[in-house]
Each structure stands twice: as structure tokens, then as C-alpha cells.
């Protein structure tokens, strides 16, 4: 037994009908859900590792590559500032990139599974 109290109850908010645990277990094993999970993980995980590595590179260069970061690019604008602004740019781009991917690749798969399961409840 994994839970010693029942799941939270006691709201007037009557939640939607819930599939049974058996249905969830079967769904988790299904090929369709496997594809959705793979589509999410194979996109989100490497991208997360990528942007964290890119950010840490910036942190480490700031610390240990003074000469390089101090190089002036234009006027008083140095490599360090350009690097910092590049972090802003990549953040905006990654957010846009992920959202486009989620809308086109993840949402249709998720919605298909959801409506199929809801029909079975």
C-alpha cells in the first residue's frame, strides 16, 4: 500500500471523471503514449541540457577567461556584454522554438489520447 490517506477530497470543485488506475497503467504501456513521451523527452531533455551548458559556459568564461571577456567589440561594449545579451536572445528563441514544437507535435498527440480515454470513462 503506497498511500496511507485517500487522495485529497473536499472541494466543491467537482473535478472531471477520472479513469481507473488500470486504465492509466494500460495507457502508459500503449504505443501511442510511448510516442508522446518520446516526443516530449527527446526534445525537452537535450534542449535543457543544452541551454544550461550554454549558460554555465557564460558563467565560467566570466570567471576564468577575463582577457577574452574584456575584449572591446565596439566602443565600450565588450565581449562579456555581448555574451550576456546573447543569453537573452537564446532564451527568447528557445521559448519560441519549444512552443512551436509543443503546439505542432505534442498537443495533437496529447489531445488524441485525452479524448480517447475520456470516451472510455
Amino acid at each position: 500500500m503506497a498511500t496511507d490517506v485517500p487522495p485529497p477530497r473536499g472541494g466543491a470543485e467537482t473535478g472531471p471523471a477520472q479513469p481507473t488506475t488500470e486504465q492509466f497503467l494500460a495507457e502508459q504501456e500503449s504505443e501511442e503514449f510511448g510516442e508522446l513521451r518520446h516526443a516530449h523527452r527527446s526534445f525537452a531533455f537535450p534542449l535543457t541540457i543544452g541551454f544550461i551548458a550554454w549558460y554555465l559556459l557564460y558563467v565560467l568564461l566570466s570567471n576564468y577567461a577575463g582577457g577574452f571577456m574584456d575584449t572591446k567589440v565596439v566602443g565600450n561594449i565588450n565581449v562579456a556584454l555581448v555574451f550576456g545579451l546573447a543569453q537573452f536572445l537564446t532564451t527568447f528563441l528557445i521559448a519560441w522554438f519549444y512552443s512551436r514544437y509543443a503546439t505542432t507535435k505534442l498537443d495533437p498527440k496529447g489531445e488524441a489520447i485525452k479524448s480517447r480515454m475520456e470516451a472510455d470513462v
Binding site: A2, Q18, P19, Q28, M117
Partner: peptide, 20 residues
């Protein structure tokens, strides 16, 4: 680990089935 609960959480979290 509670396999049933993990199945619930994983399927819900990616599909929104049963979400409040």
C-alpha cells in the same frame, strides 16, 4: 515505487486527462 500512481501522474501530466 507505486507503479499505478506513477502511471496516473505520467499520463495526466502529458495529456491533461482528468485535470481540475
Amino acid at each position: 515505487p507505486d507503479k499505478g500512481k506513477y502511471a496516473e501522474l505520467e499520463v495526466k501530466s502529458l495529456t491533461g486527462i482528468g485535470a481540475h
